[in-house]
Amino acid sequence: MGFIVALILCSIVSSFCSSANSLSLNYYSKTCSNVDSIISKVVKDATSKDNTVPAALLRLHFHDCFIRGCDGSVLLESNGGNKAEKDGAPNLSLHAFFVIENAKKAVEAACPGIVSCADILALAARDSVVLAGGPTWEVPKGRKDGRTSKATETAKLPSPAFNISQLQQSFSLRGLSTDDLVALSGGHTLGFSHCSSFEKRIHNFNSTHDVDPTMHPSFAASLKNICPVNNNVKNAGATMDPSSTTFDNTYYKLILQGKTLFSSDQALLTAPYTKNLVSKFASSKTAFYTAFANSMIKMSSINGGQEVRKDCRAVN
Rank of each mutant, 00 (worst) to 15 (best):
residue 157 L to E: 04
residue 251 Y to L: 02
residue 231 N to A: 01
residue 44 K to N: 14
residue 292 F to S: 08
residue 185 S to M: 12
residue 136 T to N: 10
residue 81 G to R: 09
residue 142 G to F: 04
residue 40 S to I: 02
residue 186 G to T: 04
residue 235 N to T: 11
residue 138 E to Q: 14
residue 136 T to C: 00
residue 275 K to Y: 08
residue 39 I to K: 01
residue 3 F to G: 03
residue 7 L to D: 07
residue 260 T to Y: 03
residue 198 F to R: 00
residue 45 D to G: 11
residue 86 K to N: 14
residue 121 L to E: 07
residue 135 P to F: 06
residue 268 L to I: 02
residue 307 E to Q: 12
residue 213 P to L: 09
residue 128 S to F: 05
residue 56 A to S: 06
residue 194 H to Q: 12
residue 115 V to H: 01
residue 11 S to G: 08
residue 255 I to F: 04
residue 162 F to P: 00
residue 18 S to K: 07
residue 285 K to F: 01
residue 272 P to H: 10
residue 212 D to N: 15
residue 240 M to R: 14
residue 252 Y to H: 05
residue 286 T to R: 06
residue 170 S to G: 12
residue 195 C to F: 03
residue 38 I to S: 01
residue 103 A to V: 10
residue 269 L to A: 04
residue 75 L to R: 01
residue 34 N to H: 14
residue 104 K to N: 09
residue 117 C to W: 03
residue 14 S to A: 13
residue 6 A to M: 11
residue 217 P to S: 12
residue 196 S to H: 13
residue 294 N to G: 04
residue 170 S to C: 11
residue 281 F to W: 13
residue 316 N to Q: 13
residue 41 K to C: 00
residue 191 G to A: 11
residue 269 L to W: 00
residue 171 F to V: 11
residue 299 M to I: 06
residue 181 L to G: 05
residue 254 L to P: 03
residue 211 V to R: 02
residue 208 T to L: 11
residue 286 T to G: 05
residue 11 S to L: 08
residue 160 P to L: 07
residue 109 A to L: 14
residue 42 V to M: 07
residue 171 F to C: 11
residue 291 A to D: 01
residue 45 D to H: 13
residue 143 R to M: 08
residue 164 I to T: 05
residue 144 K to V: 00
residue 72 G to R: 05
residue 183 A to S: 13
residue 9 L to A: 10
